[in-house]
Every structure is written in C-alpha cells, then in structure tokens.
Simulated assay, not measured.
Amino acid sequence: MVAVTERTFSSNRVLLSAERCQTKFRRNKVLVSPIKWSPQCGQWSHAHYADLSTDECMMGVRRILYVYNGLGVSDVCRDQLFKTLSTLIHPDYHVVEYIKPEEIQCGLWKRNAALITFGGGYDEGFIGALRKEGLKQVQTYVESGGSYLGLCAGGYFGCDRIEFDKHGPLQVCDERHLKFFPGICRGPVFPGFKYRSFKGASAASVTYKPLSGQPVTFSSYYNGGGQFTLYGEGDSDQTVEILAWYNSLPGTPAAIVKSVVGDNGLAILTGIHPEYDSSLLARDDPCIQRFVDTLDKWDAERIDCFTDLLRRLRITVNF
C-alpha cells in the first residue's frame, strides 16, 4: 500500500498524531500530494488523491461516526449517544467523534464519514446553528450515499414536516429541510413533556422488526419523541420501511422508520431512545424511578435493537 497519510487538523488541534494517523480515503483514493490550509474552515483542504483498490483502501482505515455537538442538543442525550456508539462499534473499522455546527458547514467531514447522528434536544436549535450551508451539507452527504441517524429531536429534524405540541404552549408546526422521510413527525406521543425535565419521560413499549428473526417487543426510554406518518392516508412508499411500532397507542403508529435517500443514502429516524443506557439515568429522580426498573428489564433487547439499527446503516459492530 502507498505509504502516504493525511493528518487532519481542526482549530489548530492535531486530531491524529503521527503514531496514530489513519489513511483517509474517498472512493478508493488515497492522498498523494500536500493539502492546503483553508482559513474559512480552520482546516486543511483541497487534497489530491490517487486510485487504490478497495482492499488496499480498507487496510488501516477507520471511518468516523459523527455525533452532533452544538446548539439544540441535550448534553445528556449527546453523551448517552456517544457512549453507546463507542461501546458497540468495531474499533478496527470505526471511531466516534463529536462534530460542531461550523465543522458541518465546512463539509470536509464528509470525506471520512461513516455516519452522522443527531440526538435529543430541540431541532430548531440544530437549524439555527447549522444555517443554510450546514443543512445543505448534511442533506447532500446522505443523498450521495451517506448514512444518517436521528433520535427524538434528530428524528423530527429528518422529516419533511413536523407537528410538535400542536395547539399547545410548545407548538412548533413547520416544514423541515432535510426531508429524508416523506411525511410528518407528530409528537409528543405521550403527555407531560417539558424541556430539560424528566416529567414526561417514560418506558415506551415498542415492537421492533430486526434484520433477521421474529419481531421483538421491549420497552425503551422515551421523552418527547414523535410518530412517523407518510403523506396520504393509506399511501405507501417503497423507499420507506417501518421498523418499530408504539404498542400502547391507537393504530400502533411508527416509532422507527428507515428511508432510502437519493443515491443509496440511508436515514433511520426514531421517536424513542434505544441508545439510552438505563444505568446512566438519574436514578434518584422520582420521575425516573417510576419506570427505570422496566428499562432495566429490557436492556438486552434495547442493545440488540440499537445494534441492529447500526448494521442497517452499514456500520460494523463489535459482535
């Protein structure tokens, strides 16, 4: 293999040292000439690549799972997502990193991305921080064959339109930009939601359809998420697959959906939090105490579900 590597810099900080540097690739190409400093992005860019075989490219390569870290994301949701991803991925193939809105806007992250994820919080914050350029970068990444995982607020964010707390004090009803799911996300599906609070949190019973085997029923952490409805009553869309249903709601609406986007891109959107490890919850909080034992009971099924979602998104897991 050609012994040429690219060092990645962000805000004057070396991310990969000489001892731990990874080969960056893009469509079976490797860096063969110097990269240039981009003052706007605060990173090196404009690299030139030479062709390599797929096998050569995969030697020593660890593609990145990016976790959004900026305005709109809950610190707890962000950290739960980061920890669970770090636990489940195969370390020979992937690494997990936080990514800021300004880094998303720059677009250089797309070269080595295996997945971009947005966790719980409020998606109006995502929109405000990313602005038009950042939204376009995420959209074009997925449309060009990338993978997106949106959980709770990230699930709303990935739809064509949302209806959140319609006619209520927290109402947000508007079109969304990414449009990975050709329909509406409506929520919260359970009452009592308040921002920065566990008052509306619960253990939501869902039935999940894995890649192989029979559907599995389990309970997952829930706090403010939505249900996913395709446009047009009774309509179907061959690019969309429902992966999980809320068991206790009338009509058992969709709790997790998968969409094929553009040129073989993939997006999975969830209203629940299968990434949440119940052992890390604030177990002394009376609101959490109401249902934490239920989450503990179904923890193995939760892990299986989240692992299955990662496999669907073309992530190599650790078992």
Rank of each mutant, 00 (worst) to 15 (best):
102 E>A: 10
163 E>C: 13
238 Q>G: 10
221 Y>A: 04
302 R>W: 06
104 I>P: 00
284 D>Q: 12
259 S>R: 03
217 T>L: 01
212 S>I: 07
141 Y>S: 03
175 E>D: 14
304 D>N: 12
43 Q>V: 11
126 F>P: 04
241 E>M: 11
3 A>I: 12
191 P>Y: 06
33 S>K: 08
259 S>A: 11
318 N>R: 14
257 V>T: 13
95 V>H: 07
175 E>I: 11
268 I>E: 10
211 L>N: 09
49 Y>P: 06
174 D>Q: 15
77 C>W: 02
115 L>C: 07
80 Q>M: 12
222 Y>G: 03
74 S>P: 00
106 C>M: 02
185 C>E: 08
133 E>P: 00
132 K>W: 10
295 L>A: 06
306 F>V: 00
310 L>N: 04
312 R>D: 05
38 S>K: 05
184 I>S: 11
159 C>D: 03
86 S>L: 06
219 S>C: 12
152 C>W: 02
106 C>I: 00
88 L>I: 15
9 F>Y: 15
293 D>R: 09
163 E>W: 12
86 S>W: 03
100 K>Y: 11
128 G>E: 14
255 A>H: 08
170 L>S: 13
39 P>S: 09
254 A>P: 10
163 E>T: 13
145 G>H: 01
10 S>H: 06
189 V>Q: 14
235 D>V: 12
264 N>S: 11
177 H>E: 10
93 Y>V: 13
139 Q>A: 08
205 S>V: 04
75 D>V: 12
200 G>T: 05
160 D>A: 15
306 F>I: 02
84 T>H: 09
30 V>P: 00
290 R>K: 14
125 G>P: 06
292 V>F: 09
158 G>C: 06
155 G>D: 01
5 T>K: 12
284 D>F: 05
158 G>L: 04
